[in-house]
């Protein structure tokens, strides 16, 4: 009896030790991973804190990441729409703007909304075109498939600086320059290759027996695709959507040349005007607007987080 008791206790001790070891190794893992992730997040944290710092505080070395002197000047202008002149007047009592371009024009909300529109619309259009394409590439055997895929990919090869002029000229001829429609389509161009390839590999993961079964049940090929198969690739579509959103959100040079009406600009272009040659760089506004511009995409990512990781498998790993 005693012997059994002892061995039971030993076992428990061993188990506890094992658990503790596991806990410690997981803690170590967390520390290491956390440290690396911190390095990646640090610039954003710095940017975020800078948006609440006084202008001179931004330049302090090493930067104060907590407990610094705060100001709401940047956010109240960028998001609140307060004219900068008023903000300055309040702060220093002078009846003037600064030497910079900072008198008016840092209000960013309308441009954020523009960006949301461009990103969402171009993502939807991209998915609408890419999904059937990807399905077809996945399901049908056809001659030259490899070449078709390579062609789709190759449309991403041309450097933006070379593509933007001819597209501007074409747009002008078609009179769709300076329209939201035109820019959305240009963003579709940027996103279509990656979305198609991503979705295609995802369709590959869905057994084609499912299509056959659906068609035996009386569905047409399109019906099988639209009613049955598309649902299985929803996570893949979420992943593709995130990438499309990010690329559209970040796009700069097409937006700069295809949209020449200031009110229609996305944020990425608006930021470029914050660095002006008639005054210092507006670091405070850049920090506030830059942080603000992360929020919409970030929220979307939070929503689809679960699907994102699953969806990005690119259907690749199969035994």
């Amino acid at each position: 009896m005693a012997a059994v008791n002892t061995s039971n206790t030993d076992l428990r001790i061993a188990q506890r030790q094992h658990h503790r070891q596991q806990f410690i190794s997981r803690l170590l893992l967390t520390l290491v991973t956390g440290a690396i992730v911190f390095v990646f997040i640090f610039p954003i944290w710095f940017w975020f804190t800078a948006s609440f710092k006084t202008f001179t505080g931004i330049f302090q070395l090493p930067p104060q990441l907590l407990g610094f002197e705060t100001t709401d000047t940047w956010w109240s202008v960028v998001i609140g729409g307060r004219p900068y002149v008023e903000a300055v007047r309040e702060a220093v009592g002078a009846t003037a703007g600064t030497g910079g371009a900072g008198t008016v024009g840092y209000y960013t909300v309308p441009f954020l909304l523009n960006s949301v529109f461009y990103a969402v619309a171009s993502t939807l259009v991209t998915l609408l075109i890419a999904t059937p394409t990807a399905y077809a590439l996945s399901r049908f055997t056809m001659r030259g498939k490899q070449n078709v895929v390579f062609f789709i990919l190759s449309t991403r090869f041309m450097p933006a600086f070379a593509a933007v002029l001819p597209i501007t000229l074409i747009y002008r001829a078609l009179e769709i320059d300076d329209t939201r429609f035109g820019l959305v389509m240009a963003h579709v161009l940027i996103n279509l290759p990656i979305a198609t390839l991503l979705l295609k590999s995802f369709f590959d993961d869905v057994p084609s027996e499912l299509d056959d079964a659906a068609m035996v049940d009386g569905c047409t090929r399109f019906g099988a695709f639209w009613r049955i198969i598309v649902r299985y690739v929803a996570p893949g579509m979420a992943a593709a959507a995130v990438l499309c959103l990010i690329f559209s959100w970040n796009e700069f040079i097409f937006s700069l040349y295809l949209i020449r009406i200031p009110d229609l600009r996305p944020v990425s272009v608006t930021f470029a005007t914050f660095d002006s040659s008639s005054g210092g760089t507006e670091w405070g506004f850049l920090a506030a607007a830059g942080t603000a511009a992360m929020i919409p995409v970030f929220i979307f990512i939070l929503f689809v987080q679960r699907n994102l990781i699953r969806g990005l498998t690119l259907g690749a790993v199969r035994g």
Partner: peptide, 20 residues
Amino acid sequence: SAAGMMRMDRAAAAPIARAP
């Protein structure tokens, strides 16, 4: 609403930012 925003005509718009 997206279709509305994407109308083919070019929006003629007032400047967003106003002077003090």
